[in-house]
Design a binder for these strands. Structure first.
Length: 266
DNA sequence: TACATATGATCAT
DNA sequence: TGATCCTATGTAA
């Protein structure tokens, strides 16, 4: 379930599991046979996330670039399992194996390619960097498109997807159709700060939970039922958890967004 | 069995 | 804006 938090968590977990020596690679599905053969037996150095892009660095200098797209998954699997024929890539270290299915992209790239990819991305709330916040504010300020469209644009901010955009706008009380450049600096800054906090929480729990602990009666985050974890996403005609007004849906940037007409006035 | 849908992005028109 | 790609899952037929 890939928004930025998933990819950052993946980078961390892959690093933990594969950073012990040579890694076996194969493509049971066949569509990445050449790439897998090139990686096979090589030393894994580190992995890194940038927005929704995952980069795995090999001692040979090769970089594995993975983008999960809408339906892709990259998950740990028992060492002794039987890889099915939809597994694009299997990576197997000494103690752990991972299976990649349905990626939007999976390729061996060069450091130059990697830089070309990241150069097109806006600031990533989960990466370090002193100017990220100002960068976000300035990029929002320079588009008249609706804020609901701007948050999905990876060249404005890298890592937000359809769930977080709805949740972040409800939590900040911003109507999704408001032009991004209409937000004042304080409001845009608040939106960035909230994004950082929420994505960190998502990375920690490896799932999206935006409701505050108060709102879930102090239950621990990982025990929250899926239907209780969010304020807005996919909650058409259900009462807002903050004010009781019925949640509405509309389409922005080709995707559905849900919002509270009272908490998020125009 | 078939279809709709999904936390994404690209390409064509 | 619409079609398309990739896979898994849930619901309908």
């Amino acid at each position: 379930m890939p928004e930025g938090h998933t990819i950052h968590r993946l980078a961390r977990d892959l690093g933990r599991d594969l950073d012990h020596g040579p890694v076996a690679a194969l493509s049971p599905q066949g569509r990445f046979a050449e790439g897998a053969a090139r990686i096979d037996g090589n030393i894994f150095d580190k992995s890194e996330a940038y927005g929704k892009h995952l980069f795995c660095y090999w001692r040979t200098g090769d970089i594995l670039h993975v983008h999960l797209g809408l339906i892709g998954k990259f998950r740990p699997t028992p060492l002794d399992d039987d890889p099915g024929d939809t597994i694009r890539l299997r990576l197997e270290g000494r103690d752990a194996a991972w299976h990649l299915t349905g990626p939007q992209s999976c390729a061996i790239i060069t450091p130059e390619d990697r830089d070309d990819i990241t150069a097109k991305l806006g600031p990533d709330p989960l990466r370090r960097g002193a100017k990220r916040r100002d960068d976000f504010i300035s990029r929002l300020g320079s588009t008249k498109r609706p804020i609901g469209a701007a948050l999905l644009d990876q060249s404005i901010v890298a890592g937000i997807g359809n769930v977080y955009r709805a949740e972040l706008l409800l939590l900040t009380g911003i109507h999704p159709s408001r032009p991004a450049c209409d937000l004042d600096e304080e409001q845009a800054g608040e939106l960035w700060d909230l994004t950082v906090r929420q994505l960190k929480r998502g990375r920690k729990w490896n799932r999206i939970v935006t409701v505050s602990d108060d709102d879930v009666d102090r239950r621990v985050t990982h025990n929250i039922a899926p239907e209780d974890a969010l304020y807005a996403y996919h909650r058409s005609d259900e009462p807002c958890r903050r004010c009781g007004t019925l949640i509405e849906a509309r389409e922005i940037a080709g995707r559905s967004i849900w919002f509270c007409p009272s908490c998020q006035p125009r």
